[in-house]
């Protein structure tokens, strides 16, 4: 597991107030929304802020988010390719 994967899990737990959840409990390929981690639409918006704040990526089309935020793996891939910081 790369540092980015771990870093993302940590920030997700912190930013989205997933209290009592450990980094080790989030699988890289687990769905973040729906059945998996059970995140909701406000969490998705907060993840968009996280991309901008931590990685300098600005998402302007909310529909893009659906694929990017599928799992930790898809998020990490997207960040690697697009990060400006």
């Amino acid at each position: 597991m790369s540092d980015l994967h771990t870093e993302l899990k940590k920030s997700i737990i912190e930013q989205l107030n997933l209290e009592d959840m450990e980094v080790s409990e989030i699988e890289n390929d687990e769905h973040l929304f729906g059945d998996g981690l059970g995140l909701d639409s406000i969490d998705a918006l907060e993840l968009i802020v996280l991309l901008e704040k931590d990685y300098g990526i600005k998402l302007t089309d909310p529909n893009q988010g659906k694929e990017i935020f599928n799992s930790i793996n898809t998020m990490a891939d997207f960040i690697e390719k697009n990060r400006t910081r």
Binding site: L16, N17, I42, D43, L45, E46, V49, E52, K53
Partner: peptide, 10 residues
Amino acid sequence: KKFPSPSLFV
């Protein structure tokens, strides 16, 4: 001031 937080705004 920096990144308006949707989860606070709600």
